[in-house]
């Protein structure tokens, strides 16, 4: 398949997954506010501040808004087109990429994405967001699910599909690690609350933002404990939003694209992904605890970035043609052909 097309499919899928995850994070954080006791401005501010931090956009936020409030932060993450990771920006970029491969994806997939895009940019979307934010964010999640479901059921499971899976699972693994990481930050300082009611609320919220609460309880019957939550979201072998699960999928897709058997590698991307996967396969929570959760998650994010850029180099990237040079070479060749074919006259 064309490298440019593979690139667009990868990013199309990544941006949709990103929009969905942003919707999840904002939604859960809104809901968490309802569970807090003793809410004061300061506490609300801290709460939202940490969220801005998790997306590395503190500077941009400060430039655009006076202070972090429920309204300003959710606006920033949802509609702000200056914010490259907002839902609107993610969906716009997903659609730009989809437009470039409009001929490759099915009409249903395109229509669904285009519908979401037109919706988030409409006045009606803002209205709903104000009056019923939970309904609004559910629509975004539903839209992403519908798109992914359509991809599974109407798009040929060939090379292009594997690139779509790559984009989706790399993004998802990255976001799950960030969701965990940010809560780790706000939880740790409040030693007073560890194990307390707020703590359980917070960690339950993490599970909910990954739609993991029910699955978690299947495994760890009833108590919500920080380390178990972390274990579930990092190491679960079969929960589809866990980091390990996503990395398994990434590795499998890479191998299906190149046809390389397991435990071997034919390019940098496979090497990185194989290493990351073994790391996850052979880690226990004790190891992770020993190295520090934050450091461990940081390492995973770096590895995912490395895989992403290795995929780019292996499959998408052709060194930029030096157009002037190319033109000269071609003109030179044409000159030679002409000299060669025209009969010598004297």
């Amino acid at each position: 398949m064309l490298s440019r097309v593979a690139d667009s499919l990868f990013w199309l899928s990544r941006y949709i997954e990103r929009a969905e995850n942003t919707a999840r994070i904002v939604d859960v954080n809104l809901q968490m506010l309802l569970d807090f006791q003793r809410m004061d401005d300061e506490k609300i501010k801290d709460h939202w501040q940490s969220l801005i931090k998790s997306v590395d956009e503190e500077e941009l936020f400060d430039a655009l808004y006076k202070k972090p409030t429920s309204e300003s932060v959710t606006e920033f993450l949802t509609f702000q087109s200056e914010n490259p990771d907002s839902i609107v920006s993610s969906l716009s970029r997903a659609r730009e990429n989809a437009r470039m491969v409009r001929d490759q994806i099915s009409t249903e997939m395109w229509e669904e994405l285009n519908r979401m895009y037109l919706f988030v940019r409409s006045k009606q979307a803002r209205k709903q967001w104000k009056s019923d934010p939970y309904g609004f964010y559910k629509l975004i999640r539903d839209g992403s699910h519908l798109f992914q479901g359509l991809t599974d059921s109407v798009y040929p499971h060939d090379e292009g599909w594997e690139f779509i899976q790559l984009g989706r699972h790399i993004e998802r693994a990255d976001k799950t690690s960030r969701i965990l990481d940010v809560k780790y930050h706000i939880l740790l300082p409040s030693v007073r609350d560890v194990g307390g009611a707020v703590d359980v609320v917070q960690w339950s919220a993490i599970l909910r933002s990954c739609s993991a609460q029910e699955a978690y309880h299947h495994v760890y019957v009833n108590s919500v404990e920080p380390w178990k939550v972390a274990e579930f979201l990092i190491l679960s072998e079969d929960f589809p939003r866990s980091i390990r699960f996503c990395c398994q999928r990434v590795d499998a897709s890479l191998r299906r694209i190149s046809g390389t058997p397991e435990h071997e590698f034919s390019n940098e991307a496979e090497k990185c992904s194989g290493r990351l996967l073994s790391n996850l396969n052979y880690s226990s929570m004790d190891d992770i605890f020993a190295s520090g959760l934050h450091e461990y998650l940081d390492g995973i994010q770096r590895d995912l970035n490395r895989i992403g850029s290795a995929i780019f180099k292996t499959y998408f990237f052709y060194p930029a043609t030096d157009l002037e040079n190319e033109i000269r070479t071609q003109q030179h060749q044409q000159q030679q052909t002409r000299d060669h074919t025209s009969p010598a006259t004297s």
């Binding site: 064309l2 490298s3 440019r4 090379e159 052709y318 071609q330 052909t337």
Partner: peptide
């Protein structure tokens, strides 16, 4: 059929190729 942009194509020895994965 594939839809290509100019940058997807390259000419080598008077033959046209597309850049694929």
């Amino acid at each position: 059929i594939e839809i290509v942009e100019g940058r997807d194509l390259v000419v080598r020895d008077a033959k046209v190729y597309m850049r694929t994965t």
